[in-house]
């Protein structure tokens, strides 16, 4: 890749840091929200790009992270001894036991990543140890997303039902309505994006990353080199789930709401589209994909509210058939073409 392209990240980072002074506060809140989603996309590069595991259920883990932080914020805003509004309307007279620990801020914070990671690890272990792979695995993850969203809606008295959880006031003693809050939140999100990016890059370059790619290429070959492939895949799934949870929690803070409509089957497919558009083998591609698709969605659905799902489907089909490595692959091919003519042929042939 030419040098100027590999240095582009500096420009991107400078722009991201300067964004609060460059764009309107509405745009900043959108950007923060989409950056939170980019954290989930980074997890998908690891899971889908590197390990070749297509999960159509990332919304579940996004939701677990989002609900974990939302439950905490609901609880801390309550006067002593009261229940969240929707519970009272449903006639509940005591807090369900599993809500109780979320009042503790440390527990809630840990749960944001630990809950999706544990659920993801258990779920994927049960499936992978039966050697269910490929399309069958993807279908099972989609079923998981369907179950999760359905459960959230049907258990309205303890989940807030279709409306989800909203109306948050403070987080860790900070007033969410204060003028500095959006900018602080933006920088926290940006920081996590950078951390997730660097962490994922480190993992991809590690021996673990090599093993994931090897498993994607030939799971049998790897098994017959003496590796038990199941735990490697479970770890990849759990890390992607944890990143989805972190993204979900940050999204919930930006958006001020988490609801079943954000975590079900369709949002889970959208998450795959972000990464397919950006390029699933590229970390920056996935981040760019999450931003581009979501900004496009915002534009399109405010202009033509009905059109978004059609556009989404069309984009997905186009990308899968014409650009299997997404925008990142296209950029690499275009930028690399000149270099390729000069150096590659001798190497490729022989």
């Amino acid at each position: 890749m030419p040098k100027y392209l590999s240095q582009l990240w500096i420009v991107a980072l400078v722009l991201a840091v300067a964004a609060p002074w460059l764009i309107s506060s509405y745009e900043l809140s959108l950007l923060g929200r989409f950056l939170a989603m980019a954290i989930l996309a980074i997890g998908l590069v690891l899971l889908w790009g590197e390990a070749g595991i297509l999960s159509l259920g990332q919304g579940v883990f996004f939701g677990l992270g989002g609900y974990a932080i939302a439950m905490h914020m609901k609880l801390v805003s309550l006067p002593e001894g009261e229940l969240p509004d929707f519970m009272m309307w449903s006639g509940l007279d005591a807090l369900p036991w599993w809500w109780v620990p979320f009042a503790n801020p440390v527990f809630a914070l840990v749960a944001v990543v630990a809950l999706p990671a544990i659920v993801g690890a258990l779920f994927s272990w049960l499936v992978f140890r039966r050697r269910i792979v490929g399309t069958y695995f993807s279908l099972i993850t989609q079923a998981l997303a369907l179950c999760f969203a359905t459960l959230l809606v049907s258990k309205q008295d303890v989940t807030g039902g279709f409306n989800g959880l909203t109306d948050f006031k403070t987080l860790f003693g900070q007033d969410l309505a204060s003028p500095g809050a959006p900018i602080a939140l933006y920088f926290v999100t940006l920081g996590f994006v950078v951390l997730a990016f660097l962490g994922a890059r480190w993992l991809i370059g590690s021996r673990y990353g090599i093993l994931l790619r090897a498993t994607r290429d030939g799971e049998n070959r790897v098994r017959f080199l003496g590796y038990n492939t199941t735990p490697y895949k479970v770890v990849a799934f759990a890390i992607a789930a944890a990143l989805a949870g972190l993204g979900g929690a940050l999204f919930t803070l930006h958006a001020g709401v988490i609801s079943p409509a954000l975590v079900g089957v369709v949002p889970s497919i959208e998450m795959i589209v972000w990464v397919a558009v950006g390029g699933r083998y590229s970390l920056w591609g996935a981040v760019a994909g999450a931003l581009i698709v979501n900004f496009a969605k915002d534009e399109i659905s405010s202009a033509l509210p009905e059109a978004w799902l059609y556009v989404l489907g069309a984009v997905f089909i186009l990308v899968v058939t014409l650009l299997p490595r997404g925008i990142a692959g296209l950029v690499r091919d275009l930028a690399g073409r000149r270099a390729l003519v000069a150096t590659k042929p001798q190497e490729v042939q022989k």
Partner: peptide, 9 residues
């Protein structure tokens, strides 16, 4: 080839 030793560079 135990999986938990497979991280690192």
């Amino acid at each position: 080839r135990r999986w938990w030793t497979g991280f690192g560079h």
